[in-house]
Simulated assay, not measured.
Amino acid sequence: MSTAAPRQKEPPPRRTEGRLSNGAFALLLTAPGLALFAAIIFYPLLSALFTGFFQQDLRLPGREFVGLDNFAYWLDGDFLTILEQTLVFTVGATLLPFVLGFALALALNTGLKGSGFLRGLFLFPWVIPGVVVSFLWMWIFNANYGVLNGVLVEAGIIDESVAWLGRPGTAMLAVIVTKTWASFPWMMVMLLAGLQTVPKELHEAASMDGAGSVRRFFAVTWPQVRGVASIVLLLEFIWNFQHFDTIYVLTGGGPAGTTETFATAVYQTAFNGFDIGRATALGGLWMLLLLLLVAAYLRITERKGDV
């Protein structure tokens, strides 16, 4: 007669009270980074925005709460003028290097002889620091001994030297040209990378159908690189919207404030006018506009990723 084997007792369940959940463990791992982010970015940002509600002079101790007076000072004053001049600089310093960079990218993409050497040569302005570029072009635009005036006078285009950086009608153009020279290589490289992803079979098929070079560009090339071009344009627009060094070195916002942008206005108000409250208020308004541009950039990249 067989006897049933005795039933073994099941081991007691493990205690999990002392273990962290996956979410808590992830939070613990990211806590040092979050603390560093809050210390160097989040807290200074909130502190600066809070300062915009106070009247504060850098030369005097203490500050006085004035509410929205600092923001009203700009909105009722020079805000629209500064915005207009910032947009003029931003649009000009974005479209001009884009056109130049795209033209060079198209030329280099055709397999031009010595294209490797030319590509490296065109990158030269990009690797030079912005302040150095600004001083270089300040010398070129100089009214007394500038190279530009010397060449134009010798060619008979102008009769006398022109103060390019001292005239309201030419100062902004000079700043845009300087920024164009410094930024077109980056746009050229990005657009060239986009052009090299276009399948050659599409161009060959369009050629067999009798399409010329202009028609092939709009029917084949542009649709393929439109996504890259839109991201390049928007990124350059955002960077130029907050650009500082070229404008400050060449003109300092002058003459008569005709090249003043948000970046130079905030600097001049804070460190030349010593009014940190109004400078912070203008910086807060400037930041809101930048957030709109960043939101547009994220929207475009999301659409490109969905495709």
Score class of each variant (00 low, 15 high):
residue 100 L to A: 07
residue 107 A to P: 01
residue 126 W to V: 11
residue 108 L to Y: 09
residue 126 W to P: 10
residue 66 V to M: 08
residue 83 L to I: 12
residue 86 T to S: 01
residue 127 V to N: 09
residue 153 V to C: 04
residue 141 F to V: 01
residue 114 G to Y: 02
residue 85 Q to I: 09
residue 111 G to T: 15
residue 81 T to A: 08
residue 106 L to V: 04
residue 93 A to V: 08
residue 109 N to Q: 06
residue 130 G to R: 10
residue 110 T to I: 02
residue 150 G to L: 05
residue 128 I to D: 02
residue 116 G to L: 12
residue 158 I to D: 08
residue 118 L to C: 05
residue 114 G to L: 03
residue 69 D to S: 15
residue 72 A to D: 08
residue 155 A to H: 01
residue 85 Q to W: 07
residue 91 V to F: 13
residue 128 I to G: 08
residue 159 D to E: 06
residue 90 T to D: 03
residue 103 A to R: 00
residue 80 L to F: 14
residue 93 A to C: 09
residue 74 W to T: 08
residue 92 G to L: 11
residue 96 L to Y: 06
residue 140 I to N: 05
residue 138 M to H: 09
residue 83 L to R: 01
residue 65 F to H: 06
residue 79 F to V: 10
residue 115 S to T: 04
residue 135 F to K: 14
residue 145 Y to R: 03
residue 100 L to H: 01
residue 110 T to V: 03
residue 88 V to H: 00
residue 97 P to L: 10
residue 106 L to R: 05
residue 124 F to S: 15
residue 115 S to E: 00
residue 130 G to Y: 03
residue 94 T to Q: 03
residue 154 E to D: 02
residue 75 L to T: 12
residue 155 A to Y: 00
residue 104 L to F: 14
residue 87 L to H: 02
residue 142 N to K: 00
residue 147 V to S: 03
residue 154 E to T: 06
residue 133 V to I: 15
residue 141 F to P: 00
residue 93 A to Y: 05
residue 124 F to P: 14
residue 136 L to M: 12
residue 98 F to R: 02
residue 150 G to K: 00
residue 159 D to P: 00
residue 66 V to W: 11
residue 66 V to Q: 10
residue 127 V to G: 14
residue 114 G to M: 04
residue 147 V to F: 05
residue 138 M to G: 11
residue 81 T to F: 02
residue 88 V to C: 00
residue 70 N to T: 13
residue 159 D to F: 00
residue 73 Y to E: 04
residue 100 L to V: 13
residue 71 F to E: 09
residue 75 L to E: 02
residue 85 Q to R: 13
residue 90 T to R: 12
residue 69 D to N: 15
residue 91 V to A: 12
residue 136 L to Q: 04
